[in-house]
Design a protein around this nucleic acid. Structure first.
Lengths: 333, 333
DNA sequence: GTGAAAGCGCTAACAC
DNA sequence: GTGTTAGCGCTTTCAC
C-alpha cells in the first residue's frame, strides 16, 4: 500500500514557492520566472507529483474527459468490427491529448438512462454519439445537455449541428457507375431500410448514377441490410426482372445472400450478373467469388469525430464532415 | 445553453432541510425521516438535480470510475472480435453499478505512458488489465499503483493476486480427449509460442490427456498461433509422422493453415486425419470442413473481470477465477 | 512575477 | 434524526 500522493501545496513548499506559482508551472502558464519554474519542476520530480483530477475538475470546471456513446437497439451490433474500428480511430486522437475516454454502450434502456444522466451531470467535456437508430431520444438529450456533441452518421429527422458521416450516396453512385463502366445496362438494386439515413442515401446514389446515364432505375427490391433479406430480394429481382445483368446491393451481408441465390439459380458472377456490395466487411473477401464493394472509412470516422470534438472542447468551431468512400474491386464485378 | 445546474445546497434549501440531510438522502444513507426524504426527493425532482461528480470525488476520495486497459504490441489486435466481446461483457456489469468505464488502449509507447499516469493519479477506483504480452511493465505498475487491479489472463512470470482466465489447459485436454474418444491413437499437436502462458498451457493439456490415456505425446510441431505457422507445422508433422491420425492445433488460425495443407496432400478430414482447433473464432465456421474447436468464454471473461473488480472496489476480497471452455464439435473431428 | 485567499460542490465527523 | 462545519486539492482572482 503506497502513501498518500503529494499535493500541490507540498510541491510548492518543497520548491519554496507559493501554491499559485506551482499551479502556474504545472499548467505551464505565463508569468513564471525560469528560476521558479525549475524549482517546481524539480520538486515535482522528487515527490513524484501527479495532479489530482478531482480537485482540478472541481476548481476548473473542466472534466478532462470525453465520452463515446454507442446507442443501439441491437446488442449484437457491438460485437463486430465496426465497433472495434471506430474505437481504434477514437483512441488514436485521444492519445494525443490530455483527455480521458469514457465509454458508454447504450444498448438497453438502462444503458440509455445512464448515458442521459452522464450527460446531465456534465461529467464529460464533450460527447461523441454513435446513435444507430432513427429518432434516438438520446440525440435530443445530448444536444440539450450543454456540452459539445459530435454525431457519427446522420438520421432522417434532423441534421445535427456537428457530425461526421460517410459518403453513402457518393459511394453508391460510384458503385453503380462502375457497373455501367463495365458495360452493364440493366442494373437492379437491393436497398436497405428506407427509414434509415444510410438506406435512403445508398438508394439515392443508385438512382442518381442511373439517371445520369439515362438508364432505367426501376429494378428495385427492398431489404433490411440483413443476409436473409438479400436472399429474398435477389430471388424477387430474378423473378420480376429476368433480364438484369447487374445488381448493386446496399450491404455486404445482403450481397452474400444474393450470391447464394445466384449460385443456386446457375447464374455466373460476374459473367451473367455482376454484383457490388457496400461496407467492405471482412467476409467480403471470403465470398465466392470475392465481393466488389464500397469501403467505408470506419476508423477515419472515429478519428475525425474525435478531432472535431477536441476542437469543440477547445472552443473552436469546426464544420461537419463527410468522408469519402472507396470502391474496392474484386471478382464479383 | 442551459443554466448552471443546481447544487446540493440549493436542493437542501428548497426542501427546507440541511445540506447534510440532503446529502444523506442522495446517497440513501440511514437516519433520515421519511418526511425529510420525501421533501428532498421532491426538490431534486423539481430542480432536476444531478450530483456533481468532481465535488463528490474530491470529498469522498472515490472516483466513481474504473478503467479497462488493453495493453498490446499489436494495434491490429484491437481490431477484432475478441476486443468487442470483452467490452460487451464489461459493459453488462458496469451498467448495473454507478461506475463509469474509462477505456485505455495502450498499443503504443505513448498509450502506455498515459495509462501509467492514469494509474498514478488515481483517477479510477480500479483497473482491469488485459495485458496481452509477457512481462508487461504495466502489470507491475498497476499493482504498485495502490488501486485494485484485476488481470485478464495470466503470464508466465508472475501470477497476479486477482485474475480471470480461461481454462486453456482443461480446454486442450478436453479437445484431445475428444480425439481419443472418436478412436484416434496417433495424435499430434501444433503448439503456440511456448513463452506465452496460453501456449504452454494448451500444450500441457495435450500432454496430460495423452498421458492419462497412455498414448504417445511426441508428435509435436511448434508454431506461433498464426496461420502461416499452421501451414509449416502441419507440413512438418506429415513428413515426420506420416502415420498420424489426428492433430490438436492450439489456435483456429493455425488450424485453418493446417487444413489447407491436408487438402493439398489429399488427406481427408476427418476421415484420414481429424483436426481440432482452439478459440472458436468466426472463421472456424467457414473453413472446409467446418472446424471442431474449443470455445473461449470471452464475453464471460469481461463480465467476470468486472464483477471481481467491483467487489474489490467495495472492499470485498474475491478469489481468482478460471472460466471453463467448451468443445464445439463440427465436421473436422 | 508572485503570494494570499476565496471558493468549486460535496462528504463526513461531530455536536446536538 | 438533523444541522453545522471543516476540509478534499486545485484554480483563479486580486493585490502587491
Amino acid at each position: 500500500m503506497s502513501n498518500r500522493p503529494p499535493t500541490l501545496d507540498e510541491v510548492a513548499q518543497r520548491a519554496g514557492v507559493s501554491t499559485g506559482t506551482a499551479s502556474r508551472v504545472i499548467n505551464n502558464a505565463q508569468h513564471v520566472s525560469a528560476k521558479a519554474r525549475q524549482a517546481v519542476e524539480r520538486a515535482v520530480e522528487e515527490l513524484g507529483y501527479v495532479p489530482n483530477v478531482a480537485g482540478r475538475s472541481l476548481a476548473s470546471q473542466r472534466r478532462g474527459a470525453v465520452v463515446l456513446a454507442i446507442s443501439s437497439d441491437d446488442p449484437a451490433l457491438f460485437a463486430n468490427l465496426f465497433f472495434a474500428e471506430v474505437i481504434t480511430g477514437v483512441n488514436a486522437v485521444i492519445e494525443e491529448t490530455d483527455l480521458q475516454l469514457m465509454l458508454v454502450l447504450a444498448a438497453s434502456e438502462r444503458g440509455r438512462d445512464r448515458l442521459a444522466r452522464l450527460l446531465q451531470s456534465r461529467s464529460a467535456d464533450g460527447v461523441m454519439l454513435l446513435a444507430l437508430r432513427e429518432n434516438d431520444p438520446l440525440s435530443k438529450l445530448a444536444d440539450e445537455s450543454g456540452v459539445p456533441v459530435v454525431h457519427g452518421g446522420r438520421s432522417l429527422d434532423r441534421t445535427p449541428r456537428w457530425y461526421v458521416d460517410a459518403d453513402n450516396r457518393g459511394g453508391a453512385r460510384q458503385a453503380v457507375e462502375h457497373l455501367i463502366g463495365i458495360g452493364r445496362q440493366r442494373i437492379a438494386t437491393i436497398t436497405g431500410q428506407l427509414d434509415l439515413h444510410v438506406g435512403v442515401n445508398r438508394y439515392l446514389g443508385y438512382r442518381e448514377a442511373l439517371a445520369l446515364a439515362g438508364l432505367d432505375d426501376s429494378r428495385v427490391a427492398h431489404g433490411d441490410f440483413g443476409e436473409a433479406s438479400g436472399v429474398a430480394g435477389m430471388t424477387r429481382l430474378l423473378d420480376e426482372h429476368p433480364d438484369l445483368d447487374a445488381v448493386f446491393v446496399a450491404s455486404d451481408a445482403m450481397a452474400a445472400g444474393a450470391l447464394t441465390v445466384l449460385r443456386d439459380r446457375g447464374k455466373a458472377v460476374p459473367e451473367d450478373i455482376a454484383v457490388v456490395g457496400f461496407n467492405d466487411v471482412v467476409t467480403a473477401q471470403h465470398t465466392q467469388p470475392r465481393l466488389t464493394t464500397v469501403h467505408q472509412p470506419i476508423e477515419a470516422l472515429g478519428r475525425e469525430m474525435t478531432r472535431m470534438l477536441v476542437r469543440l472542447v477547445n472552443g473552436e468551431r469546426p464544420t461537419p464532415l463527410i468522408l469519402p468512400t472507396e470502391l474496392v474491386i474484386r471478382e464479383s464485378a
